[in-house]
Amino acid sequence: MRRVLPFPWVSAALLLLWLLLQGSLGPGSLLLGGALALVGGWLLAVLDPPRTRLRRPLAALRLAWVVLVEVFRSNNAVARLILAPTTRGRSSGFVRIPLDMRNPAGLAALACILTATPGTVWAEYDSARGIMLLHVLDLIDEAEWVRIIKDRYEARLMEIFE
Protein backbone atom coordinates (compact mmCIF):
# COMPACT_ATOMS: atom_id res chain seq x y z
CA MET A 1 0.00 0.00 0.00
CA ARG A 2 2.76 2.46 0.89
CA ARG A 3 4.61 1.62 -2.31
CA VAL A 4 1.60 2.33 -4.51
CA LEU A 5 0.23 5.32 -2.62
CA PRO A 6 3.05 6.90 -0.61
CA PHE A 7 1.03 10.09 -0.02
CA PRO A 8 -2.67 9.18 -0.07
CA TRP A 9 -3.89 12.71 0.75
CA VAL A 10 -1.79 14.35 -1.94
CA SER A 11 -2.97 11.77 -4.47
CA ALA A 12 -6.60 12.32 -3.49
CA ALA A 13 -6.14 16.08 -3.84
CA LEU A 14 -4.58 15.65 -7.30
CA LEU A 15 -7.49 13.46 -8.42
CA LEU A 16 -9.98 16.01 -7.09
CA LEU A 17 -8.09 18.81 -8.88
CA TRP A 18 -8.25 16.92 -12.17
CA LEU A 19 -11.96 16.18 -11.83
CA LEU A 20 -12.69 19.82 -10.99
CA LEU A 21 -10.71 21.02 -14.01
CA GLN A 22 -12.51 18.58 -16.30
CA GLY A 23 -15.86 19.28 -14.67
CA SER A 24 -17.02 15.71 -15.23
CA LEU A 25 -17.14 12.35 -13.50
CA GLY A 26 -16.88 10.29 -16.70
CA PRO A 27 -14.71 7.15 -16.87
CA GLY A 28 -12.14 8.94 -19.06
CA SER A 29 -11.47 11.75 -16.59
CA LEU A 30 -11.49 9.31 -13.65
CA LEU A 31 -8.89 7.15 -15.39
CA LEU A 32 -6.60 10.05 -16.38
CA GLY A 33 -7.04 11.68 -12.97
CA GLY A 34 -6.20 8.41 -11.25
CA ALA A 35 -3.03 8.08 -13.32
CA LEU A 36 -2.08 11.67 -12.49
CA ALA A 37 -2.71 11.04 -8.78
CA LEU A 38 -0.53 7.91 -8.76
CA VAL A 39 2.37 9.49 -10.66
CA GLY A 40 2.12 12.66 -8.55
CA GLY A 41 2.42 10.59 -5.37
CA TRP A 42 5.48 8.76 -6.69
CA LEU A 43 7.17 12.00 -7.78
CA LEU A 44 6.61 13.45 -4.32
CA ALA A 45 8.06 10.28 -2.76
CA VAL A 46 11.24 10.82 -4.82
CA LEU A 47 11.51 14.36 -3.41
CA ASP A 48 11.13 12.90 0.11
CA PRO A 49 9.53 15.83 1.96
CA PRO A 50 9.47 15.81 5.77
CA ARG A 51 6.35 14.05 6.98
CA THR A 52 3.95 15.68 9.37
CA ARG A 53 0.81 14.35 10.88
CA LEU A 54 -2.34 16.24 11.72
CA ARG A 55 -3.03 15.07 15.24
CA ARG A 56 -6.41 16.64 15.77
CA PRO A 57 -8.46 17.22 12.62
CA LEU A 58 -11.31 18.68 14.66
CA ALA A 59 -9.04 21.26 16.26
CA ALA A 60 -7.78 22.11 12.76
CA LEU A 61 -11.34 22.71 11.58
CA ARG A 62 -11.99 24.95 14.58
CA LEU A 63 -8.81 26.90 13.80
CA ALA A 64 -9.94 27.29 10.17
CA TRP A 65 -13.17 28.82 11.42
CA VAL A 66 -11.31 31.21 13.74
CA VAL A 67 -9.10 32.27 10.81
CA LEU A 68 -12.11 32.81 8.54
CA VAL A 69 -13.83 35.05 11.09
CA GLU A 70 -10.58 36.93 11.63
CA VAL A 71 -10.15 37.44 7.86
CA PHE A 72 -13.62 39.01 7.64
CA ARG A 73 -12.99 41.22 10.66
CA SER A 74 -9.57 42.42 9.57
CA ASN A 75 -10.66 43.02 5.97
CA ASN A 76 -13.18 45.47 7.36
CA ALA A 77 -10.63 47.02 9.72
CA VAL A 78 -7.91 47.46 7.07
CA ALA A 79 -10.37 48.85 4.50
CA ARG A 80 -11.38 51.47 7.08
CA LEU A 81 -7.74 52.33 7.78
CA ILE A 82 -6.99 52.77 4.07
CA LEU A 83 -10.03 54.96 3.43
CA ALA A 84 -9.64 57.01 6.64
CA PRO A 85 -9.21 60.70 5.77
CA THR A 86 -6.06 61.19 7.85
CA THR A 87 -3.29 58.86 8.87
CA ARG A 88 -2.65 60.73 12.09
CA GLY A 89 -3.06 58.82 15.31
CA ARG A 90 -2.18 55.55 13.65
CA SER A 91 1.20 53.95 13.78
CA SER A 92 2.48 50.82 12.12
CA GLY A 93 5.56 48.96 13.12
CA PHE A 94 7.45 45.77 13.80
CA VAL A 95 6.84 43.55 16.82
CA ARG A 96 9.11 40.78 18.03
CA ILE A 97 7.13 37.82 19.29
CA PRO A 98 8.80 34.98 21.20
CA LEU A 99 7.36 31.61 20.13
CA ASP A 100 7.40 28.32 21.99
CA MET A 101 6.46 26.30 18.93
CA ARG A 102 9.36 24.60 17.10
CA ASN A 103 7.47 22.31 14.73
CA PRO A 104 8.29 23.48 11.16
CA ALA A 105 4.83 22.63 9.80
CA GLY A 106 3.18 24.53 12.63
CA LEU A 107 5.44 27.53 12.06
CA ALA A 108 4.71 27.47 8.33
CA ALA A 109 0.98 27.35 9.06
CA LEU A 110 1.32 30.27 11.48
CA ALA A 111 3.28 32.28 8.90
CA CYS A 112 0.64 31.67 6.24
CA ILE A 113 -2.25 32.50 8.56
CA LEU A 114 -0.66 35.74 9.76
CA THR A 115 0.36 36.89 6.30
CA ALA A 116 -2.97 36.03 4.69
CA THR A 117 -4.94 38.00 7.27
CA PRO A 118 -4.92 41.67 6.30
CA GLY A 119 -3.07 43.86 8.77
CA THR A 120 -0.26 41.52 9.74
CA VAL A 121 2.73 40.28 7.74
CA TRP A 122 5.26 37.75 8.95
CA ALA A 123 8.67 39.22 8.18
CA GLU A 124 11.34 37.02 9.72
CA TYR A 125 11.98 34.10 12.04
CA ASP A 126 15.07 33.51 14.14
CA SER A 127 15.13 29.75 14.56
CA ALA A 128 17.97 29.80 17.11
CA ARG A 129 16.05 31.92 19.58
CA GLY A 130 12.52 31.22 18.42
CA ILE A 131 11.65 34.88 17.88
CA MET A 132 9.57 36.02 14.95
CA LEU A 133 9.33 39.48 13.53
CA LEU A 134 5.85 40.63 12.62
CA HIS A 135 4.81 43.82 10.88
CA VAL A 136 1.49 45.20 12.08
CA LEU A 137 -0.40 47.92 10.22
CA ASP A 138 -2.33 49.24 13.21
CA LEU A 139 0.06 48.84 16.12
CA ILE A 140 -1.36 50.17 19.35
CA ASP A 141 0.01 47.91 22.04
CA GLU A 142 2.85 45.46 21.45
CA ALA A 143 2.09 43.30 24.48
CA GLU A 144 -1.49 42.96 23.30
CA TRP A 145 -0.30 41.54 19.94
CA VAL A 146 2.02 39.07 21.63
CA ARG A 147 -0.90 37.88 23.73
CA ILE A 148 -3.28 37.65 20.72
CA ILE A 149 -0.86 35.58 18.66
CA LYS A 150 0.09 33.24 21.45
CA ASP A 151 -3.47 32.61 22.62
CA ARG A 152 -5.38 32.69 19.39
CA TYR A 153 -3.01 30.84 17.06
CA GLU A 154 0.09 29.38 18.67
CA ALA A 155 -1.72 27.41 21.38
CA ARG A 156 -4.10 25.91 18.83
CA LEU A 157 -1.36 25.12 16.31
CA MET A 158 0.74 23.41 18.98
CA GLU A 159 -2.28 21.32 19.89
CA ILE A 160 -2.69 20.32 16.23
CA PHE A 161 0.90 19.69 15.20
CA GLU A 162 2.95 18.82 18.28
Binding site: V78, S92, F94, V121, H135
Partner: peptide
Protein backbone atom coordinates in the same frame (compact mmCIF):
# COMPACT_ATOMS: atom_id res chain seq x y z
CA UNK B 1 5.94 47.82 4.95
CA UNK B 2 2.53 49.46 5.27
CA UNK B 3 1.77 48.89 1.61
CA UNK B 4 2.47 45.15 1.91
CA UNK B 5 -0.80 44.89 3.82
CA UNK B 6 -2.96 46.45 1.12
CA UNK B 7 -3.13 43.65 -1.51
CA UNK B 8 -4.32 41.09 1.06
CA UNK B 9 -7.76 42.70 0.88
Amino acid sequence: YERVHAPTL
